[in-house]
Design a protein around this nucleic acid. Sequence first.
DNA 1: TCTGGGGTCCTAGGACCC
DNA 2: TCTGGGGTCCTAGGACCC
Length: 436
Amino acid sequence: MYALVDCNSFYANCEKLFRPDLRGKAVVVLSNNDGCVVARSPEAKQLGIKMGVPYFQVKEFCEKNDVTVFSSNYTLYADMSHRVMSTLEKLCPTVEVYSIDEAFLYLADYPTAMTDLNAYGTKLKAIVEQYTGIPVCVGMGSTKTMAKLANYAAKKHPATKGVCVLDNLRWIRRIMQITDVGEVWGVGRRYKVRLNQMGIHTVYQLAICEPAKIRQHFGVVLERTCLELNGQSCLGIEAVEAKKQIISSRSFSTRISCPDELSQAVCSHAAKAASKLRKQDSVCHYLSVFAKNSSFSQTESYTSISGQCQFITPTADTRVMVAAARQILTQIFKKDVRYAKAGVMLFDICQHHEVQPDLFADDSSDNQTNQQSTSKSAEVIAVMDQLNKRYGQNSNQQSAVFIASEGIKDKQSWQMSRDMLSPCYTTNINQLPKVD
DNA sequence: TCTGGGGTCCTAGGACCC
DNA sequence: TCTGGGGTCCTAGGACCC
């Protein structure tokens, strides 16, 4: 038996938590750069504001209807997420944190939960809400896909009071019959269209399909979904593993054509990617740089540039990676393009201790010197990481110690806009909420 | 004027191996 | 004229997730 605990309108509720004056009012949270709506309180959904809609299209509507709008404050959301997850870990021995706002719990080995699933679900919900202030819904089923479905039902149908246990066949069938096939975990927009064309509209219709037929038309992934809907578990609890690919990228608030400005942006992304890499104790073999103009423009043709390089000795050294990124950019740069976004990707990532030294590396200087310089470089980076950990970032997201070619962020007019950013209530001593 | 930023897995086809 | 059988690795593209 699996449970899925999913926070309700997570970002919106993180914001509301510290703003009691917004209780009962419509709140939306925007994506980076204040681009799109990515979270809505129930009141905002009620008003008909759609998920993912570009903010400029609803800005006026929000002003007229007293909707409070926030820029994304990931520092706040990450901290609140951590509180929710650690609460769950106290309540169940096996927890898989699936995303910033949801987690799977594996209940089969946990007799306390199994004796009365409904009571356990209700308890989970109440305790998370009491400890963190974040409302959640709980869904339970014999497989992960069923737990997802149950969670959807718990959110959708008020009669469940936020807890839905799919443990008897009549109830399972009923929920499946009234739920659109597009709500199934693993059925996206494209598959929904194709399933509809085959006459499959409800979850129930998918569940009673011949799995082999589904495999033939859609592949093994959807076949598993189909099996999972029949109670045959194909997906288990997964351990957190190191990323196989790391990306750092961002849209600019204004367009950039100047090579120096673009270079600063790319260098910052290289530094950030390198830092992510080190956090998981990895090194990478390949680094690629990309930049592009807006794909929405009517007047400019879509232009994207990219290039990559290989590190003979895989690395996670910020200085090496920033230098490489700069070098690549000078080779691929095209002028007269109004760049809207740039970034850096890292591939072929392996653990630090798995590295194979290069047989043909230049070791004309004696080996010992070489090893010393390698460990020196590791020391420099370690000191940099320690300083940055201790002193954090300033309000412009600039680290305490950084590579000069990243530029000074205060002076970069293209940095992302976050015009409606809330304070970091829980992570910055100067921004704690005040009670008058 | 203004449209996010991450990730994963699977498949088919081609190149190549013995 | 006839042209095996079994396998790996890589890449691009397509789908999905939050």
